[in-house]
Amino acid sequence: MAEWYPVMLRMEGKLAVVIGGGPVAERKVCGLLEAGAQIRVVSPELTEGLRTLAEVGRLEWRQKEAEASDLAGATLVFAAAGSSEANLRITAAAAASGIPVNAAEDGEAGDFILPAVLRRGRFILTASVSGAGPALASRVVRELETRYGPEYAEYADELRRIRRIVKERVSSREERRRLLAAAAETDALEEWRTTGIAAEPDRLLERLRDRAGSGQDREKR
């Protein structure tokens, strides 16, 4: 059985080729659009949703059966056609060109699989069972939706600002580690979101040091 290495890819501005124009292909395209990828869809027909995206210029549509030449320039390939024969042919063509390919019908036939995803802005949670039963991963993500609400998008944005300030102003690696750990505590996240303190670097660092010191005091008790 294949062992998978989990990774997050930066796809902004990079080309992803999706073979197929049905509901599965549409789901792949929607995820790629969220990541800012350039998209080429190769299929004789498209779902209404994909056709609309093509009409407004969100993707390139090649209205034809897929060929190896359609993969030129791709960073990733998704074989999601309605035909098993077409998917096998494209998977083989991608492998021959050294392009990582996702095989929708048989995950282990490709180079990567897609986890179920919960996206809250920069805050992204994924769940996977390595292709064994995607329905379980989807259920786990639905459960996580109630635990990690829309506010986590704001938390992640604030933490990004705080991390930049700490890296710029704190020279000690150990102190940076302590301050950033304190910044990610649950009650701290809500403080950053509601007070906007990250806009005042001096005040922010003072507050972080207070929080980090309080945490150390609790550990000593």
Rank of each mutant, 00 (worst) to 15 (best):
E85Q: 15
L46D: 12
S130W: 00
A72N: 08
L9W: 12
D106M: 11
G133H: 11
A94M: 06
V140G: 02
N87W: 05
R139K: 14
L88W: 01
L46Y: 09
P150M: 03
A188K: 06
S97Q: 15
E26K: 05
S128N: 07
M8D: 02
S84W: 10
R62A: 13
W61C: 07
D106N: 13
L125I: 13
G36R: 09
A183R: 11
V117G: 03
Q38I: 01
A66I: 04
S43D: 09
E108D: 13
G110D: 11
A92E: 15
G196W: 12
K64S: 14
S214E: 15
G133Y: 06
G49H: 09
I197L: 15
P6K: 07
A156L: 07
V140T: 12
R177A: 13
D217S: 10
R10W: 05
A72F: 01
A199W: 00
E168S: 13
G110E: 13
E67T: 15
G21N: 06
E175A: 04
L33Q: 14
I124W: 00
E145K: 15
E206Y: 02
E105N: 15
T146H: 13
A153C: 08
R40G: 05
E12V: 06
R178E: 15
R164T: 14
G131P: 04
A137V: 06
R142Y: 00
L46I: 11
P134H: 07
